[in-house]
Write a protein that binds this DNA or RNA. Sequence first.
DNA 1: GTTGGCACTCATATGGTGAGAGTGCCAACC
DNA 2: GGTTGGCACTCTCACCATATGAGTGCCAAC
Lengths: 349, 349
Amino acid sequence: MSKVSPTAVSDRAQQLLKLLVERYIREGQPVGSRTLARGQGMDLSPATIRNVMADLEDLGLVKAPHTSAGRIPTVQGYRLFVDSLLTVKPLQPAEVRGLQAKFEQAADPQQVLVTASSLLSEISAMAGVIMIPRREQPTVRQVEFIALSGNRVLVVLVLNGNQVQNRMITTSRRYSPAELTQAANYLNHALAGKDFTKVRDALLAEMRETQESINQLMLAAIDMANRTFQGGDEGGDYVLAGQTNLMGYAEMADIDRLRQLFDAFNRKRDILHLLDQAAHAQGVQIFIGEESGYEVLDACSVVTSPYEVAGEVVGVLGVIGPTRMAYDRLIPLVDVTAKLLGAALNQNQ
Amino acid sequence: MSKVSPTAVSDRAQQLLKLLVERYIREGQPVGSRTLARGQGMDLSPATIRNVMADLEDLGLVKAPHTSAGRIPTVQGYRLFVDSLLTVKPLQPAEVRGLQAKFEQAADPQQVLVTASSLLSEISAMAGVIMIPRREQPTVRQVEFIALSGNRVLVVLVLNGNQVQNRMITTSRRYSPAELTQAANYLNHALAGKDFTKVRDALLAEMRETQESINQLMLAAIDMANRTFQGGDEGGDYVLAGQTNLMGYAEMADIDRLRQLFDAFNRKRDILHLLDQAAHAQGVQIFIGEESGYEVLDACSVVTSPYEVAGEVVGVLGVIGPTRMAYDRLIPLVDVTAKLLGAALNQNQ
DNA sequence: GTTGGCACTCATATGGTGAGAGTGCCAACC
DNA sequence: GGTTGGCACTCTCACCATATGAGTGCCAAC
């Protein structure tokens, strides 16, 4: 991706590009020299504007879909626009308060995430996505066995990151409360705070030598942890909202490409990788068109921001929409939502 | 919906309708008299077939998109076809075994449901859906409090239907294990097996008079149950797979209608209502086009079957696709999957 | 450097035309 | 009376030609 240095473009040309991109984002039509001349902000004749636009085209910042159409921005054009030309439209304080109010209605962390992604998608009229990144080090904090009726036992696993998993198992015989506590204690002692993958095998080997009666419980617990962390290894998970909003955009009308995009949403992998990249950047990051590196997102832009809990980045959120999106509104939206989400999670922990 | 009695249609006409529907389902093109005459099974001249087709059109079983096109089945035509004319193509034993194998790989009930819906969508190349209907009577089977590090307590609720819910709360002070057990015992005694909504208020009133120190825990538990059952009141939930398959069909090409359909999937309500209806029927049930009563499904057919655990209907599953679907293959597929799902859940309980 | 003029290009809309598929109806046949 | 071939008719679709209009590039003049 050849990046165009702003210095290579005259001030006037930049100003023109800015007007062109703004207009194109607003109207969605290729914009021609005449239209641009009529609009205020630039007092030049169409002919002059044509000259400048030819320069911009040579630099690869705009292109014409065909000879007799106006110009539309290229990816590089959008890039220069968002990097150096954009005047962001910050959210109104009232809007921020509105968002805040919505966040306060959510009870548990999962709820907060769902709220946030819905908000992003509703306000942007595009798709909103929130990622919870992979656990750094898979640890089991605590194991508990709860006796249920019959021969059934509920296994509860508390993992790092305050996640809880449970599974019900039916055992071959009835265990006494004392046995259950003993098994839990044993596992808690063995697993406590350590990297699960490292202690697992030792634990399994050790268990082969101890009494078999308890094994069934412990095996179930270990199997559970195994499965959970295996899933976690794929790189976290995300909450998505408002995919269907994307079906309204003319630039996404190609149903086959749209389908591929939706499939990618379901597959999750590509989207997760992309969000993962954004986790290491700080502040709002923007992927325009092919910049993302994923073919399914060629016609899309993604605006992301990491969000923090207790001063540490724990995830990334963002909006996905057509490259022709209102960057000036979306950047502050994503930024503010990230901050509010972090705050909400902080309180909610 | 005027139902056409089979007796009002001559045997030959029925036979012809059958061939017509089969061919249309196969080719997707309006079928004309000439085409139908060439195909075997009916040794009549195109002219005769035209006469019969005119009768079928008068009865509202087929219609012509325009004067010089062949005929396509109407909803009533499909109805008669599936009710009286269809010869189902049962699954091969090998296929059944293949399905069974997939089911055996799934560990927990949730996994089983996901597997089943994926299977349905993959084999049908349409959307697969599995519903877990609303709890008949909201009961809390068991409550447990688990002490975590710090002032945190994990509240675990076991509900009827073997569902488990948990939430982590931070308490104002540290509780001793004895206190936790005491609180759990108290709640377990009060809630045990009873209709939650009925005991809730009495319990809350009673708690106002007992020691306050324990209340925080109990309130959290009651609040959790409240929220869960409130969600449950909406009428269960479902697992959906392969929505994107629907984007491949020409008859669903209208992106606006498709969007409405996807929105309905997310909204869940309409689809749940529909599936709910199918729960009371026994065996495979089919909703063709507008028969479903939901506008978003006008261009779709839904093939459903309830599934049973321990002899009792616990949910419904089905496939959703364009009205022009291979009913002869889908009916046995849905039927068998329902049985396998029931069996898998039985084992997995 | 800026501007008006002009020839040129190309997407889009419009209308006409012909081929092809399929119908309905009628008269003839078994 | 049911069945059939024949025939005129209808309608979609693909194709072509034409016109329109938006926009361009280039040039000469200011």
